[in-house]
C-alpha cells in the first residue's frame, strides 16, 4: 500500500481548485490519499476535500498565516507516524517553500516543478523541465523514506470534484516557538491576474518602445481578462515591474493563449513560454525568431493591431 499526503492550498478557508491537480497526481503515485490543510480557515477548507473522495484531513487551524519552520514542524511527526510514502504540494510560493523545508526536516529527497508523473517498472519517474525548459529531464528517487514532490500548475488534468465523502479532520499542532512567520498579508490589487495563473497572456517586449507603450497592452489584457507579461529586455529597461517577466529569469508560464507583442524571441524568453497551447506573435520584423515558434504571426505595427484585436476579442469572448 502506497500512502500519499497532499497539502491543499486555500484562500481564507476556501479550498483552491488546484486541489484537483493534487488529487490527480496522488492517484498516479498511490492508493491511499490523505490531505492536510494549514493556516487560518483550514478547518473550513478541509471539508471541501470530501468532493474528491478524500475522507481524512489533517488540519492546522491557526491565526498564523504562514510559518515555514512552524508548518513543517507540525507536519513532520504525522508523516513519520503514518509512514507516508509521498508528499505532494503545488509549485506555488507556498508549496515550494514549505516542501523544501519539509524535505530538509525529514532528510528526504525532493523533486519540484514536476510536469508529469508515471510509474515505470515499479519506479516513480518524474518529468521536470531543466534549464527553464530548454531540456526536459526524467528523474527517479533512490533510497527509502518519504519523498516530496511539487507540481507545476496546469499540467495535471484535475480530478473531478464529484464525490461526497464525509471528511474526518484530525488536528495538527504548531510548535510554541516560531523562527519566522508572516505578520501581514497585503492582498493583490483586484483586476490584476498573475501570469502564472492566467489562461491568456498579453506580453510586451522591446518593440513596445517604452513604459507608455505598455498602456495599450495593459488595456487589452484587462479588457479580455488576460494577464500582462513582459520580456527580460522590457523589464531590464525599467519599463515594467519584474513580477511581469516571462522567461528563464522570470516566470515560466503555460497559458492557453500567449500573445507576444514586439517580442523578438530570445532563447531565454522562449524557454519560459514555449509550452503555451497557442502562440500569437505580433511584430513588424518578419525575421524575428518568435515567428519560428508562433502558431499565428502578424507582421505589422503592434500599436495598429492591438486596438483592433482588443475590439474583436472582446466581442468574440462575449459571444
Amino acid at each position: 500500500m502506497t500512502k500519499v499526503l497532499i497539502i491543499g492550498e486555500h484562500r481564507q478557508g476556501e479550498l483552491k481548485a488546484n486541489a484537483g491537480e493534487l488529487v490527480a497526481a496522488a492517484r498516479v503515485l498511490g492508493d491511499t490519499i490523505r490531505a492536510a490543510v494549514l493556516g487560518p480557515g483550514a478547518s473550513q477548507a478541509a471539508a471541501a476535500f470530501g468532493a474528491y473522495g478524500v475522507d481524512t484531513v489533517r488540519v492546522l487551524d491557526t491565526d498564523v498565516a504562514y510559518s515555514s519552520d512552524g508548518f513543517a514542524a507540525a507536519l513532520a511527526p504525522v508523516i513519520a507516524e503514518c509512514e507516508v510514502n509521498y508528499i505532494v504540494l503545488m509549485q506555488s510560493f507556498f508549496g515550494r517553500d514549505l516542501g523544501a523545508r519539509l524535505a530538509a526536516r525529514l532528510g528526504t529527497p525532493f523533486i519540484n516543478d514536476v510536469t508529469a508523473l508515471a510509474v515505470e517498472d515499479g519506479q516513480v519517474v518524474a518529468t521536470k523541465p531543466l534549464y527553464a525548459g530548454k531540456v526536459i529531464g526524467k528523474l527517479a528517487f533512490t533510497g527509502k523514506g518519504p519523498k516530496v514532490i511539487t507540481l507545476r500548475p496546469k499540467n495535471f488534468t484535475p480530478a473531478a470534484a464529484d464525490q461526497a465523502a464525509t471528511v474526518e479532520t484530525k488536528p495538527l499542532e504548531l510548535p510554541a516557538e516560531l523562527k519566522c512567520q508572516v505578520t501581514h498579508v497585503e492582498p493583490k490589487a483586484t483586476g490584476m491576474i498573475d501570469v502564472k495563473e492566467a489562461d491568456i497572456i498579453v506580453s510586451g517586449g522591446r518593440g513596445v518602445g517604452g513604459p507608455d507603450g505598455f498602456e495599450p497592452l495593459r488595456d487589452f489584457a484587462q479588457a479580455i481578462g488576460a494577464a500582462l507579461g513582459a520580456s527580460r529586455a522590457a523589464v531590464d529597461a525599467g519599463w515594467i515591474a519584474h513580477s511581469h517577466q516571462v522567461g528563464q529569469t522570470g516566470k515560466v508560464v503555460n497559458p492557453q493563449l500567449y500573445i507576444a507583442c514586439g517580442i523578438s524571441g530570445a532563447i531565454q524568453h522562449l524557454a519560459g513560454m514555449q509550452t503555451s497551447k497557442v502562440i500569437v506573435a505580433i511584430n513588424n520584423n518578419p525575421d524575428a525568431p518568435i515567428f519560428k515558434l508562433a502558431d499565428y504571426g502578424i507582421v505589422d505595427d503592434l500599436f495598429q493591431v492591438v486596438p483592433e484585436l482588443k475590439k474583436l476579442m472582446v466581442e468574440a469572448l462575449a459571444g
Binding site: 529527497p109 523533486i111 519517474v125 523541465p129 531543466l130 525548459g133 530548454k134 531540456v135 526536459i136 529531464g137 526524467k138 528523474l139 527517479a140 528517487f141 533512490t142 514555449q274 509550452t275 502562440i279 518578419p286 515567428f291 519560428k292 515558434l293 508562433a294 502558431d295 499565428y296 504571426g297 502578424i298 507582421v299
Partner: peptide
C-alpha cells in the same frame, strides 16, 4: 535522486503568417 535522461522538448512547428 537520479537524473535518468534528458530530451529536448518537442519542437513547435512554425505556424502561419
Amino acid at each position: 535522486l537520479k537524473l535518468i535522461n534528458c530530451n529536448y522538448p518537442p519542437r513547435k512547428e512554425a505556424g502561419r503568417v
